[in-house]
Design a protein around this nucleic acid. Structure first.
Lengths: 257, 257
DNA sequence: GAGTGGTCTAGACCACAGA
DNA sequence: CTGTGGTCTAGACCACTCG
């Protein structure tokens, strides 16, 4: 006999345990909120609230009009230290770090790219030292996905901004950046990046991000601002990454003298 | 005239805007939920839900039995790349990276340390290669605070585990680790760290963490697993950091060849 | 249109802090 | 004990998806 829960946190804990024990397998639908409410002797509102907290944890994915799904894909590791070594890039067969990360989980990566000349966000303009009031950058906006054969999950939004002065009428405005990725192309254009800095914050997804990522507004994302610096100390690329927190583990590595 | 909100997200947006505009200053108390409810023409339950979403963002800090406070301290930067360079350590006057970070915001840092021999958590034991079933580590559990003169905020919980074999009956079991911090002391004992790795995940605070950090269970934390490696490739220290997400910005830096 | 999750009201009561 | 935030119920209705 299940102990009767009396708070939504207790309800959430019960459901969380069942998921952990495999009673509700990854990718499957939870029972109806109505049925869970009956089972637990509480109202549907309360089950809804419980499920909302599980959604915030990234354990489940409630879908309005359909059902609540148990999150399917295990967390993906991201390691920018390795990402920017030439050796690691070559090891990945010129396909980029993301490909390798996804394939190592037995999933199929996908990327959708949109290239456009745009007015940059204010913070990006400031870092790049370009105007925030006019079309001064090229953005390469990527939507990155992972597929397990049945369902496709959006794992990351990555918007990469390059000053128009650098990118205009170059391969950087093309849809295919070729082997070695953008960093290699920029090096060939005389804007080699010798150093990258990253700044990570965490926050709930905006309504727009939630839609694009297929998550709820209660779920949190990492907001990574990535800056590539040339040897002269000039910022030549700013990339804004938005990644659902439950989908990623952020790894890094530093020497220590 | 304020537009009448009809959903808790709209209520949250209104309150968020007022905070941004400075109508409810940092560190001050919000009006009563009851009064806000009357003003907006909704129920107190609904205002409570709205405030809960603002708490999840880290914008406010509801305190049961008292009032809801607008979050006072701006985010603190953390940069482990700098943290582990000898030059940066010396620049900080031997007081450690945390001190410098807090003082640069005009705040006063504080640390409370408890040193104990303990059974390590399973994942720590695995990394260190010690037993998870017996007392095999020394933990240096730190509670780190920042004070603006009026109020003191807990900013981080940092539990550092060292194999008993290394730490037993050494200065590492003392309360004061001296100039240069633990890393320097371990180097003197023959366990110099040449490399550190970090793994970051985000999740809601546990009930216990929420209590210790003075935040709500709806707020998210960064969970940083930090490992120090010796030249022989042995893990000699594992530190678990728990940091409220709204209090921190995680910076890093990498060379790029 | 039926099914399912999301939210609202109105009112009640609980939990905790502080005088 | 009072004040304040947190949550619950019961029922209703809305929003969205799918056949």
């Amino acid at each position: 006999m299940t102990p009767a829960p009396s708070t939504y946190r207790e309800v959430a804990a019960l459901i969380r345990d069942r998921i952990k024990r495999g009673e509700y397998p990854r990718g499957s639908a939870l029972p109806l909120q109505e049925d869970l409410a009956d089972e637990f002797g509480v109202t549907q509102s309360m089950v809804s609230r419980a499920i909302k907290t599980l959604a915030a944890e990234g354990v489940v994915q409630p879908i309005r009009g359909r059902r609540t799904i148990v999150t399917a894909i295990p967390p993906i590791h991201r390691n920018p230290s390795i990402r920017y070594s030439r050796a690691a890039r070559e090891r990945a067969g010129g396909k980029g770090a993301y490909d390798a990360e996804i394939r190592s989980l037995g999933l199929t990566p996908g990327v959708e790219l949109r290239v456009e000349r745009v007015i940059p966000p204010a913070n990006v303009a400031e870092i790049l030292g370009v105007s925030a009031d006019e079309v001064s950058t090229v953005v390469r906006a990527r939507v990155m996905t992972a597929s397990d054969g049945e369902t496709t999950t959006t794992t990351q939004l990555a918007d990469s901004y390059i000053p128009l002065e650098i990118a205009a009428d170059t391969v950087l405005e093309q849809d295919d950046e070729g082997v070695g990725g953008m960093v290699s192309r920029m090096a060939e254009l005389g804007y080699a990046q010798v150093r990258v800095t990253e700044s990570i914050t965490g926050r709930p997804a905006t309504a727009e991000e939630a839609r694009a990522l297929g998550i709820s507004e209660d779920q949190h994302v990492y907001d990574v601002t990535h800056v590539g610096w040339s040897a002269e100390g000039r910022a030549v690329e700013v990339a804004l990454h938005v990644m659902p927190q439950h989908m990623w583990i952020l790894d890094s590595e530093f020497p220590c003298d």
